[in-house]
């Protein structure tokens, strides 16, 4: 059931040695986003969701993760994106946040991007309006993985990735 792409934090090349940083790219609504690969523990298909009445708006409900009760956050709502329904490609990213694992619902997972220093721009280029959870812009320009299929490329412009800061993104859910 879990189509784990990459075991978190165990990339073939260590980040420090190559000056590269690894990100997991995914699509929410009509934008391409990415989280640091090390922050994503697992990728899974959407399990049955139990709605929690009177919970926060962004929270879709709870799911059972091998018996563990896990809160599922709808990233479409969190990122104020249109909700396009659940498809066969809908995935849940499991992200550790301090003492709790949270599930993040995304429309589609792209691939792992290894970005060089010069392929990452700081969020400050977006000006003061940028949300606090955006930590930068990734431009995986020339360096592409051959695994990526062309059909995906056509649907969403993944040549620009909005790099998300997991801590800031999830802070509001009872964290620090």
């Amino acid at each position: 059931m879990n189509d784990s792409l990459v075991p978190a934090g165990e990339g073939p090349l260590a980040v420090e040695e190559t000056g590269m940083r690894e990100f997991l790219g995914f699509v929410v609504g009509d934008e391409a986003y990415a989280l640091p690969l090390s922050s994503v523990r697992e990728i899974m298909r959407l399990p049955p969701v139990t709605e929690v009445p009177r919970g926060p708006h962004d929270v879709l409900g709870i799911i059972s993760l091998r018996g563990q009760v896990t809160t599922l956050i709808d990233l479409r709502r969190r990122l104020s994106m249109p909700e396009s329904g659940i498809t066969a490609r809908t995935r849940v990213l499991l992200v550790e946040r301090r003492d709790e694992t949270l599930g993040l619902l995304v429309d589609r997972v792209l691939q792992v991007y290894r970005l060089r220093e010069d392929e990452v721009e700081l969020a400050s280029v977006l000006g003061a309006d940028a949300s606090s959870y955006v930590m930068g812009i990734g431009r995986p320009g020339v360096q592409r993985s051959s695994r990526r299929s062309d059909s995906e490329e056509a649907e969403t412009d993944s040549s620009i990735l909005i790099l998300l800061d997991p801590m800031a993104l999830l802070k509001q859910y009872g964290g620090a």
Partner: peptide, 19 residues
């Protein structure tokens, strides 16, 4: 009974969930 995570700690009327 398993508790809901901290993210849902303040939801009234629900004490947890069970599998």
């Amino acid at each position: 009974i398993k508790g809901l995570g901290r993210s849902l700690a303040n939801v009234p009327g629900i004490s947890g969930a069970t599998d």
